[in-house]
Simulated assay, not measured.
Amino acid sequence: MSSSFEKYQKRRLISSYFSVVLSIALVLFLLGVLGLLVLNAKKVSDHFKEQVVVTIYLKDSAKEVETKQLEKSLAMADYVKSTEYVSKEQAAESMKAENGEDFMDFLGFNPLLNSIDVHVKADFVTAEQLEKIAEEANSKSFVDEVRYDNDLVTLMNNNVKKISFWILVLSGLFTVIAVLLINSSIRLSVYSKRFTIKTMQMVGATKQFIRRPFVWKSVRLGIIGAIVALGGMAVVLYYINKTFPELNLLQNPVLIGLLFAGIFLLGIVITWISTFIATQRFLNLKTDQLYY
């Protein structure tokens, strides 16, 4: 009978420890993923901004030397990330592939123009900067037209500002939630030992002596939970970097290392503080108050 009760108690204890570790790991994992998002928010927004294309259409009368000169000057400009020359033949093939039919069969000629697709650096993707770039290109006598999606640029910049604001708000809110959830799990774990705490106190053990094993046990659980969370973060980071290599998420390993270290230390600090407060509360209670 005694052996069965001991096994039952041991299973309850293991289940309690498992739930604490799982709570800590889940909360720290979500907080870590949010941290990765915060660290790479600008990089992600820059990536989408740099997909905006400014297309410079050239007149049929444009000489090859003029086109080459324009390409060279664009490549050297501080606002340009990359350029690509698209001949009218290439443009016709693209339209044919996109529409599934050759429009030149109906027209008998190719009405398209040679063009240069310019990918602008993210910092210059604003309505004002793109207008200046368009005016500069239009000043060339052999340039027919400059096109870009101004509405898309305005919408993108507005959304980036809104998303950045809400990411910061959510980061602060989620940090508070993380602390409260971990604190709640630790308190429940200590609560199950409240009678043991009071018994030790009644036989003369000091508060520091009683508190120490609880604190170290919780810290160990916090370390295990943090390691599980970091493993999950590493898997997420690996797959995102593999799926979107153009984002270069591993370009700054120092910042990522600091984030991982911060999550690990957070798991230790929160569990230590939570256990200290929880044990202190039960140490200060009178015996008859333990039943409420």
Rank of each mutant, 00 (worst) to 15 (best):
F103G: 02
S82F: 09
M104T: 15
L112V: 07
S115N: 14
L112D: 08
T83C: 07
N99I: 09
V80W: 13
E101M: 08
E84C: 01
N114E: 12
D102N: 14
V86Y: 01
K88E: 06
F103V: 05
S87R: 09
L112E: 04
N114G: 14
Y79M: 10
L74V: 03
S115H: 12
G108E: 05
V80N: 13
N110H: 05
T83L: 15
M95R: 13
E98D: 05
S82E: 15
I116G: 10
F103R: 06
G108K: 09
Y79E: 13
V86S: 10
S87N: 04
A77R: 06
L74D: 05
P111I: 07
A97N: 14
S115D: 12
K96F: 00
E89M: 10
Y79R: 02
I116T: 13
V80C: 14
K81H: 13
D102I: 10
E93I: 04
D105H: 04
F103H: 11
G108S: 03
G100E: 01
A92W: 12
M76W: 00
T83E: 10
K96V: 00
A97P: 00
A75V: 04
M76Q: 12
D102G: 05
D102T: 11
L74M: 13
E101L: 09
K81C: 01
F109L: 08
G100R: 03
L107K: 04
V80F: 13
V80L: 12
G108H: 08
M104A: 03
L107W: 07
E93W: 02
E93G: 01
N114D: 15
D102S: 09
D78G: 14
S115Y: 02
T83S: 09
E89V: 06
K96A: 00
P111C: 01
Q90E: 15
D78L: 07
I116N: 00
E98F: 06
A77Y: 07
Y79A: 10
L74T: 11
N110S: 03
E93A: 15
F106Q: 05
N99Q: 06
N114F: 09
M95W: 14
I116V: 14
S87L: 11
M104W: 01
K81V: 06
S94W: 05
P111N: 00
E89P: 02
N99V: 06
L107G: 01
D105P: 00
L107F: 15
L113P: 02
M76E: 15
E98M: 08
L107R: 09
E93Y: 02
S115A: 15
M95A: 09
E89R: 07
E101T: 01
A75M: 11
G100L: 03
D117Y: 07
I116H: 15
S115L: 07
E84A: 11
F106M: 12
E98K: 13
E93N: 11
L107T: 00
K96H: 00
N99M: 15
K88S: 12
M76N: 12
G108D: 08
K96Y: 00
F109I: 01
D102C: 11
S82M: 01
A77S: 13
L113S: 14
A91M: 08
L113C: 03
E89C: 04
S94E: 14
N110W: 00
L113R: 08
E89I: 06
K88F: 12
F103A: 03
S82P: 04
A92Y: 02
E101I: 11
S87Q: 05
E98Y: 07
Y85R: 12
S82I: 07
F109T: 10
I116M: 06
V86P: 14
N99Y: 15
E98V: 03
F103C: 08
P111G: 02
S94F: 07
